[in-house]
């Protein structure tokens, strides 16, 4: 058999990807930073840094700290704002023949809806990924993504303001990920992506101080892979929309584990810092695995886990 395996996947509303590997928001900048190091057109999709309506300067330092097999970050969603993204980044980014997914966030439901409506007219944006792991300032700081009714409301507002595919990005800091996933599916999300970072903390016993200025931060990297896998497996079994899996993926084998438990596609986050060509190395690794195992279509492998 000499035929190349078919790595194509579809993520709801006709968003077709040439392979199931995307960059995760916040770990790949606006994509262009990586163009000296790899061919962006080889990725399944590029998910850019979370965008807000207005530019945001983020949290004071210290913002990151390394932890065993992972890292904590409290960047505070620093970004250039949606207008600067559209004017300065998108024109070049869309020439790479790879779908660009805009990750968006707001402090109110209204802000989410406004960004969605602003990006709806941009043909260079293939889909919106809605980061619901942010505090709702109007509801006293309750994180949108930890309350099913708030998660529903945010996604519904976005849905009503765009014809593009909507991916809801879920927080793992919840008791039941399935409940949140069902709520956003009901609100009209075309897919869900999970997991975002797990809330954690690091302290310095010599100085008796927290390491991060923000005190707590989000844990990412290989350390969180078992949690992500469990949540993706549970969610994929419970919703009818595609699930995009992430959390701790740094190799093709990690990616295949997520696909096996039911993810239709995967994202690579922290691994981009360690190995800037991680995304395309993973594409190549998946291709080699399929060839070696005579898997003609990656879709045949997705969700093929046997538990009995």
């Amino acid at each position: 058999m000499n035929r190349q395996p078919d790595l194509g996947v579809t993520i709801g509303r006709g968003l077709m990807l040439k392979n199931p590997v995307m960059s995760a928001s916040g770990t790949f900048g606006y994509g262009l930073e990586f163009s000296p190091l790899l061919d962006l057109s080889l990725l399944g999709a590029i998910v850019v840094k979370g965008l807000s309506l207005l530019p945001s300067s983020g949290n004071p330092p210290v913002r990151i700290v390394e932890t065993p097999c992972g890292m904590l970050n409290a960047i505070g969603l620093e970004n250039i704002g949606v207008e600067a993204f559209v004017a300065d980044k998108l024109p070049l980014l869309k020439t790479f023949n790879t779908p660009v997914i805009a990750n968006i966030y707001g402090k109110t439901r209204q802000e989410y809806a406004e960004i969605a409506s602003r990006l709806d007219s941009e043909d260079g944006v293939a889909a919106l990924e809605v980061n619901i792991s942010c505090p709702n300032v109007k509801a006293g700081g309750v994180v949108f993504g930890t309350d099913p009714s708030q998660a529903h409301a945010v996604v519904k507002g976005v849905r009503q303001n765009t014809g593009k595919p909507v991916i809801a990005k879920l927080s793992p800091n919840v008791t039941s990920i399935v409940e949140i996933a069902k709520a956003v599916e009901d609100a009209g999300a075309d897919a869900v992506s999970l997991i975002n970072t797990l809330t954690g903390m690091a302290v310095d016993i010599d100085r008796r101080r927290p390491v991060l200025h923000n005190i707590t931060g989000g844990l990412s990297g290989p350390a969180i892979k078992p949690v992500g896998l469990r949540m993706v497996w549970q969610t994929a079994g419970a919703v009818g929309i595609p699930v995009i899996g992430l959390g701790g993926i740094s190799s093709a084998r990690d990616a295949l584990e997520y696909l096996l438990v039911g993810a239709s596609a995967i994202q690579v986050g922290t691994a981009n810092f360690v190995n800037p060509t991680a995304c395309i190395d993973i594409v190549e690794g998946i291709r080699a695995f399929c060839t070696d195992n005579k898997i003609e279509k990656i879709s045949d492998f997705i969700g093929s886990l046997e538990t009995t």
């Binding site: 913002r63 390394e66 810092f273």
Partner: peptide, 10 residues
């Protein structure tokens, strides 16, 4: 973390 302007950690 990254050294190339993408993590915004520095």
């Amino acid at each position: 973390a990254c050294g190339m302007g993408v993590c915004l950690g520095c």
